[in-house]
């Protein structure tokens, strides 16, 4: 039939690259979130220029190292599931969750012992920035727990592991935010 002539190239149903769309969507979400954190960072330097109160330097360095380490274990978990090594991935997720919890506890300890008040400008900055970040850390822990739970029930494989990748990327993003927050809150003077 003549009508079929130009139809040769058209697929009956267009197949969209769903995996790529999810990936780009997640990156756009990070993009938007980084504006949130960027504005908080700008607000911090707008109000206080460079000055800051005395904070516990060792605690800061410690929790930073814990968070960076958790990023490494999260990376290992993702790499492991990509290569179908479910057991290693599960253990690495558990380690990541524990390290993340350690970080959150460190921030909580810092809040309890900080000698400056939230009613002073630096206190407002410090508690808001660490608080918003900690909220992301805690939601990240929640996602990691859900992911681990499903992994333990045998859900993911080397071909199908988007929830693991997405959660781990979110975890890395939270880490990147702290890479900027840590010097801004602890190291500048």
């Amino acid at each position: 039939m003549a009508l079929a002539g130009t139809a040769a190239h058209a697929p009956e149903h267009v197949v969209h690259d769903k995996a790529k769309m999810k990936l780009v969507g997640l990156w756009l979400f990070f993009f938007s979130e980084s504006v949130l954190f960027g504005l908080l960072l700008s607000a911090r330097f707008y109000l206080e220029r460079i000055n800051r109160e005395e904070v516990d330097q060792l605690l800061g360095l410690g929790i930073t190292c814990v968070l960076l380490l958790s990023s490494v274990t999260a990376f290992t978990a993702e790499t492991a599931i990509e290569h179908d090594r479910r057991k290693l991935a599960g253990w690495m997720l558990v380690v990541t969750i524990l390290l993340g919890t350690g970080f959150a506890c460190g921030v909580g300890f810092e809040w309890g012992t900080a000698h400056f008040s939230k009613e002073q400008a630096f206190g407002s900055i410090f508690f808001t920035m660490t608080g918003i970040h900690a909220a992301h850390v805690i939601s990240g822990i929640g996602l990691l727990v859900l992911t681990w739970f499903q992994l333990a029930r045998g859900r993911f494989s080397g071909k199908d592991h988007w929830p693991v990748s997405g959660t781990v990327m979110y975890w890395h993003f939270v880490d990147v935010v702290w890479v900027f927050f840590y010097p801004a809150l602890y190291l500048v003077k």
Partner: peptide, 21 residues
């Protein structure tokens, strides 16, 4: 969010007397 924290948590993002702006 800053307004909310000033109200709910008693912070000073905008309280000039305590270093806010």
């Amino acid at each position: 969010l800053m307004v909310l924290l000033d109200r709910v948590a008693g912070m000073s993002w905008f309280d000039a007397a305590n270093g806010g702006d």
